[in-house]
């Protein structure tokens, strides 16, 4: 990984682009209900920013920013959020993921935002975890 120090141009471009990638990821996330995109795409984009940071700088530096334990907690809580949203609508007397029952009105919107948030958390953290797992294979 010490060889990475000589790759000047990718380093400079990455330093300039990683914040923009993160902002674009959140843009895709928060406009997920009204435009193309959504939780999965936003999660992949945000994870790609972390992966790019880990590729250009050291993986250990990326692990300091986003620790693997944090990723594991996040991936589980994303599934919990998704399933929990579905179960709440069951407990309110409807089908699984029937958003209309969450609130008196505006329930569809709230349900969609919660689902997308759950997908975002799981996808982003699992992508980063896969990257960490591949990286730790050959020592």
């Amino acid at each position: 990984m010490a060889r990475m120090q000589e790759h000047t141009i990718p380093r400079i471009v990455s330093v300039a682009l990683i914040p923009a990638i993160l902002v674009f990821g959140f843009y895709v996330q928060f406009h997920g209900e009204i435009s193309p995109g959504g939780g999965f795409q936003a999660g992949v984009i945000i994870a790609s920013a972390v992966i790019l940071y880990g590729l250009i700088f050291d993986v250990n530096a990326a692990k300091q920013v986003v620790p693997p334990a944090f990723c594991r907690i996040l991936s589980g809580s994303g599934v919990l959020l998704y399933g929990g949203t579905g179960l709440i609508s069951i407990f309110k007397g409807g089908e699984f993921l029937n958003y209309s029952l969450l609130l008196d009105h505006g329930g569809q919107h709230l349900g969609l935002v919660l689902i997308e948030l759950g997908v975002l958390l799981t996808v982003a953290s699992v992508m980063v975890l896969i990257f960490y797992a591949f990286n730790s294979r050959n020592g």
Binding site: H7, I9, V13, L17
Partner: peptide, 16 residues
């Protein structure tokens, strides 16, 4: 702007 910045960088990394 992003294409103009990233594509030459990708070519550079590929050829390196």
């Amino acid at each position: 702007v992003f294409i103009l910045v990233t594509s030459p960088t990708a070519s550079h990394a590929l050829l390196k």
